[in-house]
Design a protein around this nucleic acid. Structure first.
Length: 935
RNA sequence: GGACGGUUAGCUCAGCGGUAGAGCACUGCAUUCACAUUGCAGGGGUCAUAGGUUCAAAUCCUAUACCGUCCACCA
């Protein structure tokens, strides 16, 4: 006989159990015994910023449930963990920390040093996250852990980028983009959030018309008015030009008719600001208008704003409204205008639309797909879901998904932040001043250089070769004034220098004077005079007189997986990489296959062979993508895009979307509200199993759910119940043993419980397979507590001789619970069956199920009802158990054993069957229905 | 403006065509029997509102209200 402690204390065992699992090696599918078909889940990589929160806990609970279930079903299970570098989010966290601790911004550091700091920070959080994910009991394969900035994954990023570029799907364009002035970077359309805000709406006199705007500060240079072509009020102005007194003097304005102007909105007339509005930018393109940037990347007004230059948006608005008022141009102001303000999803700073040169992924452009068809990325994304290659659960998100794609615009993928994957694009030469070689020129020579005379001289030390990128520097004040690429190098003895060269004729009267000039420009050691052996090098270069256009060098750009040695256009050996990084979702979009060895093993991976090098063939497409519905667009859609594009296969077969965790008031958990529940605290208090149950039972896919401590405590009670069921079994049987075959039955109760077990096991299996985890869990919970514990164990105390059945039920029930509550079940398994039995996590899911016995079920139901009726009679009539009660049952034929059972099931009764003695209560049966009769 | 989800016992939620369900909370009883992180019994709901379909509606349809979310717009 074995005795467990009275209550389960999770804290005492969890770490040890996890360690046992991990050391067993079974998280790695290559080590699983008799492995069957693969089953794969790519774990959504948490941001490498912080700590475990309830969102992670939910995903881990659900995914671990599936993973453990399928492992018990004999599948070759791979669950790949990892972390996401989360570009902006992570950089922001580090920036915030640097500011708080040292009052420094990233611009106080060299780029590499700053990135190093972020990298160190990330290493730290990764360690934390690993431990926390273990605490949840996640049975993922840590030997295959990945990080989006790993070399392999970065290679995947570059590979896909280059492929897309070559397919014409990635392009660099000057377009209006969302700009966060705080983060100093662009944002994708879906990285912009909206917040309703009450603001002032200004009606301004603009020539003979009145226009409405919420943003007067952008209107400084507006000179085109749009009205609806059918708007009667403005018919007479269409096509006309006016001199309009405006913010900064008088502007020449004209009126254009276009149906975008809605007569009902505002005054029906609007001026357009091409540089700071998406719709206006489109209009400007349509009518060939210039887009002048009024607001700069720093959020301040540019020099184009005249006297308002340098003001930030807020003060500029005030100043400009003041100016308008002074000029008598304010018609009226509406104070109650509700404006939908766009803000950055990472830092909540208002987002400014502004034109900028960025990299985009074209979603509407046709290309030749690996399938041989000409398609667009949008079509690929849509068709895989429409034709059922990918199933989304719950189904209603299919519509949301399609609607999103229909509205999708080209995806802006470049970011002006430092932490992330550098865009694999190199420019000829380069603008990077630190890596550009300098050449000094006497001030007097500069005009000649700029005029296109492209020769200069340097003595003795041969610093430059063909293709070198050189910066022209004024040797007097050391200012750079231009760039050039050396295209020819000639070597000559110094004595051969003559003034025949036109350049020298102009500026120097003799060789001595020329040498004297050199002495001024270079350190003395570089100029050797009076020695006929001295060598002078003559360089010829292409001059580019403007710093900005110098950026493109000879004009060639190289898009390549590896850093190019030199420029294919001019041979420049100083290719300079684009300073931008990629949108973090670009790399996470590759997650399902970049983590499995693409592209390194894409060609050699072989299905059926073990080892990480074959993962791509064995485990892709993955089976299920389980994540929150908030990531449907950001991530799920983009994974579908990238996988179908790059591999020509779906990234996963099914998408299961869970809801968001909220507090008891239905609010989002947030740090500022202080309503967050710390999962680790809950684990410490109630155990990981209880937390897992609280997040799975009572929740439905795609719907938000509320989590609070009492709920977790409730499931802690259940886990303890399970513990005590096992404790009871171990105390009652002579020898605990693993029973896999259906045991023989003796009594009605035996037949009933095994029949019920069969049904529940079948239901649990079906429901887990169809992603109804809550339904399965609830049914199992009800069976375990209210049938097995409340009834069968009570019967067992009376009837006895049930070792085989109790051992069977224990063996099987632990398996059924394992996906939900891995810790307690694994521990009970070990406690019950000893160390000679292998781990519960790799047992076989119950397959040898007892027969369903409807008759026994019906009969036992009657027993339950009789017992309940007697107990109810006692409770209602306040008849204590101490006083005996006689019961007459009519209409049902009860055996002597059954009557004995009823009497002993805490009814304290003497039961008679079909007799006519002095019963205090009569239970009457009619067609199986029970009615209670009191005499 | 469009779409989606919710509205069921005091609270949190299942159920989605066939006599209202669970957990928690509440009330009464039990006092150590595997478990008080317990057991037994009980109270409590015209399933948001109004119409309709049906032999039968929480469940299907059509409106409405309120709560929430997403998308679009935003002069």
């Amino acid at each position: 006989m074995k005795e467990l402690s009275k209550a389960y204390e999770p804290q005492k065992y969890e770490l040890d159990i996890y360690q046992t699992w991990e050391e067993s090696g079974y998280f790695d599918p290559d080590n699983l015994p008799k492995a069957g078909e693969p089953f794969t889940i790519s774990m959504p990589p948490p941001n490498a910023t912080g700590t475990l929160h309830l969102g992670h806990a939910v995903m881990l609970a659900i995914q671990d449930l599936m993973v453990r279930f399928w492992r018990l079903k004999g599948r070759q299970v791979l669950w790949v963990p990892g972390t996401d570098h989360a570009a902006i989010a992570t950089q922001n966290v580090v920036e915030k920390k640097l500011w708080q601790e040292e009052k420094k911004t990233r611009f106080d550091f060299e780029r590499d040093d700053f990135v190093k700091q972020v990298t160190d920070f990330v290493e730290n959080s990764k360690t934390t996250i690993r431990q926390q994910f273990r605490a949840m009991g996640a049975s993922c394969d840590w030997s295959r852990e990945r990080y989006t900035l790993d070399e392999g994954l970065s290679q995947a990023v570059r590979e896909v980028f280059v492929k897309m570029y070559n397919d014409g799907l990635i392009y660099r364009g000057h377009r209006i983009v969302n700009w966060c002035t705080r983060c100093g970077t662009t944002l994708a359309d879906d990285e912009v959030e909206y917040k309703e805000q009450k603001t002032k709406f200004y009606y301004l006199k603009y020539g003979p018309l009145v226009i409405g705007t919420a943003r007067p500060e952008t209107k400084v240079l507006d000179k085109v008015i749009i009205v609806h072509p059918d708007d009667k009020r403005y018919q007479k102005y269409i096509g006309q030009e006016f001199d309009v007194p405006w913010i900064d003097g008088t502007v020449k304005a004209r009126v254009i008719a276009d149906p975008v102007a809605e007569p009902e909105t505002g005054t029906g007339a609007m001026t357009i600001t091409p540089a700071h509005s998406f719709t206006d930018f489109e209009l400007a393109q349509k009518y060939g208008l210039e887009a002048v940037k009024i607001i700069g990347p720093d959020g301040k007004l540019t020099e184009k704003a005249g006297k308002f230059a340098g003001l930030n948006v807020k003060s500029a608005r005030q100043a400009i409204v003041e100016e308008l008022r002074a000029r008598g141009l304010v018609d009226r102001i509406d104070d109650n205008y509700v404006h939908n303000l766009s803000i950055c999803y990472r830092c909540s700073t208002p987002v400014e639309p502004m034109p900028s040169e960025q990299w985009f992924v074209a979603v509407d452009k046709e290309f030749l797909h690996v399938s041989g068809r000409r398609v667009t990325l949008k079509q690929l994304m849509k068709e895989t879901v429409a034709d059922g290659q990918i199933e989304i659960i719950p189904e209603r998100f299919v519509k949301v998904y399609h609607h999103w794609i229909d509205n999708l615009r080209d995806w802006c993928i470049s970011r002006q932040i430092w932490f992330g994957h550098r865009i694999p694009v190199w420019y000829c030469g380069g603008i990077d001043q630190t890596s550009t070689l300098k050449m000094g020129f006497a001030e007097t020579v500069i005009p000649r250089v700029l005029a296109g005379m492209t020769r200069t001289y340097r003595i003795h030390d041969h610093h430059f070769k063909i293709g070198d990128r050189v910066a022209f520097e004024n040797s007097r004040d050391n200012l750079l004034f231009g760039y050039g690429t050396i295209v020819q190098v000639e070597r000559a003895a110094i004595k051969n220098i003559s003034l025949a060269d036109q350049l020298h004729q102009t500026f120097y009267k003799s060789v001595d004077e020329l040498l004297a000039a050199f002495r001024c420009h270079y350190p003395p050691t570089e100029v050797i005079t009076g020695d006929t052996e001295a060598i002078l090098y003559t360089y010829t270069f292409e001059s580019i007189d403007d710093k900005e256009s110098a950026r493109q060098g000879c004009g060639r750009i190289v898009v390549s997986v590896d850093k190019p040695q030199n420029c294919p256009g001019c041979g420049s050996q100083k290719p300079v990489q684009d300073s931008d990084t990629l949108d973090t979702w670009f790399s996470s979009a590759l997650w399902t296959f970049s983590t499995l060895g693409w592209p390194a093993y894409a060609k050699t991976a072989t299905a059926g062979r073990p080892g990480p090098k074959n993962d791509l063939a064995n485990y892709h497409p993955t089976d299920v993508m389980e994540t929150g519905y908030d990531l449907l667009f950001f991530w799920v859609a983009r994974m579908i895009l990238m996988s179908t594009y790059a591999l020509g296969e779906v990234p996963f077969r099914k998408v299961y979307l869970h809801g968001m965790v909220r507090d008891k008031q239905g609010r989002k958990m947030s740090k500022s509200l202080g309503n967050g529940i710390d999962p680790l605290e809950m684990i410490a208090k109630y155990g990981a199993d209880a937390l897992r149950l609280a997040m799975i039972i009572g929740t439905t896919p795609g719907n938000d759910f509320k989590l609070y401590e009492e709920k977790i405590a409730g499931y802690r009670n259940f886990v303890n119940k399970l513990w005590n069921i096992c404790r009871f079994v171990l105390m009652s049987v002579t020898e605990p043993k693993l029973v896999e075959t259906v045991p023989p039955t003796v009594t009605v109760a035996d037949k009933w419980i095994l029949s019920r077990f069969n049904k529940i096991a079948g239901l649990v299996t079906d429901k887990i397979e169809t992603f109804e985890f809550s339904v399965a869990g609830e049914a199992l919970y009800d069976f375990t507590w209210h049938e097995l514990a409340d009834w069968y164990l009570e019967v067992a105390k009376i009837e006895g001789g049930k070792d085989e059945i109790l051992n069977y039920l224990l063996t099987q029930i632990l398996k059924l619970w394992h996906p939900y509550t891995p810790y307690v079940t694994e521990l009970l398994w070990r406690e019950s069956f000893g160390s000679e039995a292998d781990l519960l996590m790799i047992q076989r899911w119950p397959t040898d199920l007892p027969v369903i016995n409807e008759a026994a079920e019906k009969e036992f139901t009657v027993i339950k009802q009789i017992v309940a009726a007697i107990r109810a009679y006692r409770a209602e009539n306040k008849v204590s158990l101490k006083s005996n009660l006689s019961v007459l049952i009519r209409g049902f034929d009860l055996s002597a054993e059954v009557i004995n059972l009823i009497e002993k099931l805490r009814t304290g009764s003497q039961v008679s069957n079909n007799s006519e003695n002095k019963a205090e209560i009569v239970l009457h049966f009619n067609k199986g229905q029970l009615t209670l009769k009191q005499l």
